[in-house]
Amino acid sequence: MFKPTNKRILERPVSAQPNVPDGVYDGLLESVEIKEMESRFHPDGKREVVNFKVNVKLLDDETETLYVSPTFTWSLKGKFIKQLDDLESLPEPGDELDLDRLTGMKVTVVVENTEKDGQTYSNIVKMTKRKAAVIPKPPVPTKRAIKPVEVDEDNFFDDDDQNLNLELEDLAEGKE
């Protein structure tokens, strides 16, 4: 970020590249566009990429912007096809892909840092469409089957209970 103290003095930042710790983060696709980038592997020195600009939410509620730019090709072996599949946005053969419809998509990204030429780069190594949170439902109580209880009346009362029962019958009849 450019923050001049005055127009004649410029401060060079410690690191020009964002440094996001390795890990899994929630993100938001800010933009998706086709760009032309330099490439030492292509005969004309250029390649077309699909540039995904992702705002990554860090643990301290700050955001950092990272990019992932697979080469634009419909080859089944290409990273672009895999990326669209991970975002659940791969069109069927013959169908169209509207890049603007990807903008605003909530994503989950896996970030890994690599060092090259003395610089540390934060790279998105995997990006998937974020799933909606599933709130578990409370368990439904199961109804128990009511089974009739079989009582052996002959053995249900012991001798003391039978004597008490006889005494109660005598009292009810008016006998003492």
Rank of each mutant, 00 (worst) to 15 (best):
S39P: 01
G118Q: 02
K79F: 11
S31K: 08
D22P: 10
K175F: 04
I146P: 08
V14W: 00
I9Y: 12
R47A: 09
D61E: 05
M105A: 03
A133Q: 12
Y25C: 08
Y25V: 15
P93L: 10
P138K: 06
L171F: 05
T63C: 04
S122A: 15
M105G: 04
T103L: 02
A172P: 01
K137W: 03
K131C: 02
E30G: 10
F52S: 07
V68F: 12
L166E: 15
V110R: 13
V20T: 08
P43Y: 07
P139G: 09
V32A: 02
L164N: 14
A145K: 14
G45I: 04
V50S: 03
G23L: 14
R47N: 05
R47S: 09
Q119W: 03
G104C: 00
P43C: 07
E48S: 07
T120E: 07
H42M: 05
R101P: 00
V111H: 00
N6S: 09
E36G: 00
V134Q: 14
K175W: 05
F156K: 08
V151H: 04
K106W: 04
V68G: 12
D117R: 09
F156P: 00
D95S: 00
K35Y: 06
N123Y: 13
K79I: 05
L76M: 08
T120I: 10
T108V: 10
L97M: 10
E62D: 11
N165Q: 15
D100R: 00
L66C: 07
R130G: 00
D86Y: 15
N6W: 01
N155A: 12
K126T: 15
V56L: 09
P21Q: 15
T73Q: 04
Q83P: 03
P21G: 12
K116F: 11
E173S: 06
G78R: 06
N163I: 14
D22Y: 13
E115K: 13
P138N: 03
T120Y: 01
V107A: 08
T114W: 15
N113T: 12
T103E: 01
H42S: 06
V125D: 12
A133R: 11
I81N: 09
T142R: 15
E115L: 09
Y67A: 12
L99I: 10
V109W: 00
D86C: 14
P43K: 11
L90E: 12
L10F: 07
K7Q: 12
V109F: 05
Q17D: 03
L58N: 02
M37L: 12
L29C: 10
K53G: 11
A172E: 08
K3V: 06
S39C: 03
Q83F: 13
V49N: 03
T108H: 01
N55H: 06
Q162R: 15
D61I: 05
E153W: 01
A145S: 14
T71R: 05
S75C: 14
E150V: 11
S69F: 04
